[in-house]
Design a protein around this nucleic acid. Structure first.
Lengths: 194, 194
DNA sequence: ATCGTACTTGTACAAACGTACAAGTTGAGC
DNA sequence: GCTCAACTTGTACGTTTGTACAAGTACGAT
């Protein structure tokens, strides 16, 4: 009733194949998903283990405490976003219209609400727990760094703040993005200060 | 060892004075504080009761389920902010420089991080739990409504998004507000579209 | 082949949880 | 004064929690 050894592996009640690195990763991914669905505060060892299809003991073997597990999940989420950001950088560099392209990227980003929710989970968690701040900072600085060369440091920061606010609103309201309005707003912020 | 009846009230192990309305309010306030410190996901009946100085049973008497209790805390927080917004409206109406005044108000708002944290807790909670969305919407629409007459609906929404993003950043980074930079950004967004 | 370390896994346990409830207390209406 | 509904409170119960751990398995080094 417990493990149901398959007919393929006749009689020995096997342990699974060993691959510690893959387990760490699987746990981090599962943690990410649980955070997205239940929130940081309701993330538990057991929920993560079930999601990863691993026994409870595996979670504490690789991540001694719950905080470690959650940090690993959040870090994995930001690593994933960092990778997406490289894509953003390329597309923005090649785009004839920076504001329009940025709007389009935002629209695509908003398509996967689960991913977006994790970022904001990370923010409020970092606002409360200083240990998570480095992870949050790495994430928050990503886009401004990409935008700064083309837009200047100040405009880059302002545009990022605008996007964060717009995304937050869309997330809470479950509303569609007002693309033309956003493009226009970005253009205004791109206006040189001098 | 349990209640320690004071020497003042000699022998009867008294119940406290009855004031249901005050109890509801005290519980809502205590819930708000617990949410600000621990987050929605780690808010418990016992933590709220302890914070309010009331017995555990009082929480379930006034708020049958934990969700009710949390909703009451969040609603109380937004009610409080609505009251602050009236103040904002008056000051903005009287201000000679809208952008500068808005910056100053933001600076003052950021002084109480605990309050700010609750708003963002509400946002991520509402993003996950649709039952909280009306509360979140009431809050999110507050400032745009105030700004719209003076700035136009579009600029009002953009400025609010900008402020939300700036505030989020300051919250996560624990950094100071760049007041001149914010004022300049607001001015750009105030530029008429036509 | 064997040995030891690294990994796996099921189970155990005390603490904390949401919620239920019985017994007690109060004060307004009669 | 008596009554009854509203309120108060301590305690209890079954779950779920974080974490610990013993017993077992696999695999590189020897």
């Amino acid at each position: 009733m417990t493990g149901a050894p398959s007919a393929r592996t006749p009689e020995r009640r096997t342990q699974r194949a060993r691959d510690p690195q893959a387990r760490r990763a699987a746990l981090a991914v599962a943690t990410m998903e649980v955070i997205a669905e239940a929130g940081v505060g309701r993330t538990t060892h057991r929920a993560v283990a079930a999601r990863a299809g691993l026994p409870l003991g595996a979670t504490t073997y690789y991540f001694p405490t719950l905080d470690d597990l959650i940090a690993a999940g959040l870090r994995h989420a930001t690593d994933q976003l960092r990778a997406d950001l490289d894509d953003w950088a390329q597309r923005l560099a090649a785009a004839p219209d920076l504001a329009a392209e940025l709007t389009e990227l935002t629209r695509e980003y908003l398509a996967d609400r689960r991913q977006v929710r994790i970022e904001y989970e990370l923010c409020v968690a970092a606002a409360r727990d200083a240990a998570l701040r480095p992870i949050a900072e790495t994430w928050m600085d990503g886009l401004p760094e990409i935008l700064a060369p083309a837009a200047g440091a100040d405009a880059a920061r302002d545009i990022c703040a605008l996007l964060d606010g717009i995304i937050l609103r869309a997330l809470v309201m479950e509303s569609e993005l007002d693309a033309p309005g956003l493009t226009a707003a970005i253009r205004r912020l791109l206006t040189n200060a001098g």
